[in-house]
Design a protein around this nucleic acid. Structure first.
Lengths: 187, 187
DNA sequence: AATAATAGACAGACCAGTTAGTCTGTTTTT
DNA sequence: AAAAACAGACTAACTGGTCTGTCTATTATT
């Protein structure tokens, strides 16, 4: 296989497995057999399973952040663009592969001491928070910087519970409830 | 060791390990060596590691539900008793053993197909939701049943994100933010 | 009260399978 | 000709779980 494709193939395969089965329950041997890549090749691209995990988190975070932002921006201005975050989540929830948030899942699987993975997760969440800040600035230009900072954390928190609780209960009521809270906050 | 104490010892030791290290990263051998119980004895009390996990969840859930309810009821009536849930969480967060929510951690570690453990987790969360319903009924007797049902889910969601996000960010700002949302909801 | 029987604790060998990671040697791509 | 792919053997440690056999405390029978 061509060099440039190998790395991508590994990440793609590992990502599917990590997300569906969890990090600890996915073995290196499963990754190589599923992706058709030799073990030595895998370790030529990544020095450890941990490094593949970091790549996995980034591989899912980057398109997620882009897609959810594009989706929100496509809606009419105002609180609609905030609510759109939850409509996006609902579509994700209804897709057959939904298995909760990869970041929250992974953080529950690693020891507290694993700062490499923890940092990657916090980085992704910080990017998400920044995205919410951008949406608030666009849609509520009259709010002060401080108000936006406060509001964005609130929206973030509500989003986070909506994704993890819809996963836990295997039901979309948490997404609906989240939208109720958002509506209360923005009126 | 006396029969009745053996089971308790196993659960207590396993609980500490499962909560601190995670379910998958804790081995049976570690549980037996740490608790000083023979392997055959352990399997005389539990038919599998999975069963120990169920006992672990119950072992932490039961006192948690009792303690947080007692704490809330000790506060003055009104929204104070709801906010008390988050003060209780903050104390928990500041304790040295805090490692997030055992239920949310465990659900991220098990395959979707594991209904035994998933049921136990959903059971614990449902009990927590009922507790919030009780608190709302006591403190807001004028609200209709429907209003209480709606509000309780909102409070529940906010609590859940406060615990998981304070864990993720290793910071108590999510608890503070959660209380801001609660105050908005109840005024 | 003395003896016998049962339950359940103990230690730890053992099983088959899996783990992450290394290494050797060969073939293909650039 | 150099780089990097390939297959896959191999290591040492660990996994959940079973099993054998011993020892001790409680209970039942005489």
């Amino acid at each position: 296989m061509k060099h440039s494709l190998v790395r991508e193939t590994i990440i793609k395969t590992a990502s599917n497995l990590f997300y569906q089965k969890g990090y600890n329950l996915t073995g290196i041997n499963e990754i190589i057999s599923e992706s058709g890549i030799a073990k030595a090749t895998l370790y030529n691209h990544f020095k450890s399973k941990e490094d593949i995990c970091v790549a996995y988190l980034d591989y899912l975070n980057t398109p997620f952040l882009k897609n959810i932002e594009d989706f929100a921006l496509s809606k009419s201005k105002g609180s609609e663009q905030i609510l759109a975050l939850f409509d996006f989540l609902e579509k994700f929830f209804l897709s057959e592969n939904f298995n909760g948030c990869w970041c929250l899942n992974t953080i529950s699987e690693i020891p507290n001491q694993n700062i490499k993975i923890r940092n990657e997760i916090q980085k992704g969440k910080t990017e998400f928070l920044k995205l919410i800040v951008r949406l608030l600035e666009i849609n509520f230009p009259n709010k002060t910087k401080k108000e936006v900072a406060t509001l964005s954390k609130q929206v973030y928190l509500i989003y986070e519970s909506a994704i993890s609780e819809s996963h836990l209960h295997q039901n979309k009521w948490p997404i609906k409830t989240a939208k109720e809270i958002i509506e209360k906050i923005f009126t």
